[in-house]
Design a protein around this nucleic acid. Structure first.
Lengths: 152, 152
DNA sequence: CACCAACGTTGGCTAGACCAACGATATGAG
DNA sequence: CTCATATCGTTGGTCTAGCCAACGTTGGTG
């Protein structure tokens, strides 16, 4: 009957916070689906990436890098350690800490995930050309940097 | 005292899907806090806005407008009807339907929420000038439009 | 030594976004 | 007119991300 019955009200359509949220929803759907093919979730990728780029580090430090809460980090490391993608070992220099290190298999998996993720980004950004993609990334980076560490 | 220990790995920092998600996190935090002052959540605002802009409509139609699931719509209408911000009445022309209409008090509340939300948007977009805000809104709109109705 | 901070871990909470199924009602095909 | 199909509101789930509080252990400092 009514054409375009799915059009949101103007108030919502113009709301930057909602646009951002809706875009994030779409992005997460695409990314989650891509990662699911490899049997992992976003937290797993984030941890592997941080572990690869910064080398062996404590769970707390990795949490600060990735924004993953200490409590969620426990389960994430559990998962990846079970699959031998990272190793968890007590830090002899500070016995409160676990040292988490990425394994060779972890690096390999990370490379595979990088490819899946690149395709996902492309699907997400499909309607935008290269210049627009750069602009968007720049604007979002400025927003995220501004709000980093505010209360999250 | 490591400097900038919270810096995310490059892989994550450059990932548009993650940037979008982090921005949405910040936006939602700010918006939720603003709405909480008025004792409402995002769903409530969305429903009031749709109800005001499109007039009396069925719950299902409002759900399509706002992206709120039918099942979640029930509770949302319950909440607002309890506070007399909307009215729910059986539709005599189609007895499957409930007609939801915004009340005078609902319009008043909506105006109040509009103000709170405008301030929240400003806080969210603080680091961007007017031109950048328009650019961001445009880019996000194109993304959201492209992905609308894909599987959400 | 006494404190306080940081660590990993357990356990819990919330909201948002979903899905499946039901009975009641409308609609459309034949 | 009948039968199949679709829609509506509603109930009752599920899942996950993002949180927070508290605990015992350990480290560092006064």
């Amino acid at each position: 009957m009514d054409i375009e019955e799915g059009t949101p009200p103007q108030r919502l359509r113009a709301l930057p916070s909602r646009l951002t949220n809706q875009a994030a929803l779409a992005a997460n759907r695409i990314v989650d689906q891509a990662l699911a093919e490899a049997g992992v979730r976003r937290y797993h990728y984030a941890l592997l990436a941080a572990s690869e780029e910064y080398g062996p580090a404590s769970q707390a430090a990795l949490g600060r890098r990735t924004g993953i809460d200490r409590s969620d980090m426990v389960a994430t490391v559990n998962d990846l350690a079970e699959r031998r993608l990272v190793e968890r070992a007590p830090d002899p220099e500070d016995r409160r800490r676990n040292t988490v290190s990425i394994t060779a298999a972890g690096r390999q998996e990370l490379t595979r995930l990088d490819r899946l993720l690149a395709a996902a980004q492309d699907a997400f950004l499909a309607p935008l050309g290269q210049a627009d993609r750069r602009t968007l990334t720049d604007l979002l980076t400025r927003l995220v940097d501004h709000h980093r560490g505010e209360q999250g």
